[in-house]
Amino acid sequence: VSKLITEALSVSQERVGMSLVALKKALAAAGYDVEKNNSRIKLSLKSLVNKGILVQTRGTGASGSFKLS
């Protein structure tokens, strides 16, 4: 899941990052079952932020906008 998230964010052209909703849409378009794996998406977002791979530009927790650091 982390690999899919970083790939989706690297393609994004948004300056402020990608919102959680837009990220879920991009994952669904890539063929990932978002409804079934919603908790996995949130956990991997939090772990990527803690590792310093992603930066959360808006919001708290697993909601808001994210971009690559």
Rank of each mutant, 00 (worst) to 15 (best):
V1P: 14
S2V: 01
K3Y: 01
L4M: 14
I5Q: 00
E7I: 01
A8Y: 04
A8W: 12
L9F: 11
S10G: 13
V11F: 08
V11Y: 12
S12I: 14
S12D: 13
S12V: 15
S12K: 05
Q13T: 08
Q13G: 06
Q13M: 04
Q13D: 06
E14I: 01
G17H: 09
G17F: 02
M18R: 15
M18Y: 02
S19R: 06
S19C: 08
L20A: 06
L20E: 11
L20I: 12
V21L: 11
V21R: 15
L23P: 00
K24L: 03
K25R: 08
K25T: 04
A26E: 05
A26T: 09
L27R: 00
L27I: 09
L27E: 00
A28M: 10
A28C: 07
A29F: 05
A29T: 12
A30D: 04
D33M: 15
V34H: 03
V34L: 06
E35L: 07
N38I: 07
N38Q: 11
N38W: 15
S39Y: 02
S39C: 01
R40T: 10
I41A: 03
I41S: 01
I41T: 02
I41H: 03
K42W: 03
K42G: 07
L43G: 11
L43E: 15
L43D: 14
S44M: 11
S44C: 15
K46Y: 00
K46Q: 06
S47K: 07
S47P: 02
S47V: 05
V49D: 03
N50D: 09
N50G: 09
N50F: 00
N50A: 12
G52Y: 03
G52N: 06
G52I: 04
I53D: 06
I53T: 10
L54M: 14
L54R: 15
V55K: 15
Q56H: 15
Q56P: 12
Q56R: 12
Q56K: 14
T57Q: 12
G59K: 13
T60K: 13
T60N: 12
T60W: 09
T60R: 08
A62D: 13
A62E: 15
S63C: 02
S63P: 12
G64V: 15
G64M: 15
G64P: 15
S65G: 13
F66W: 11
F66T: 08
F66I: 05
K67W: 06
L68H: 04
L68Q: 04
L68E: 09
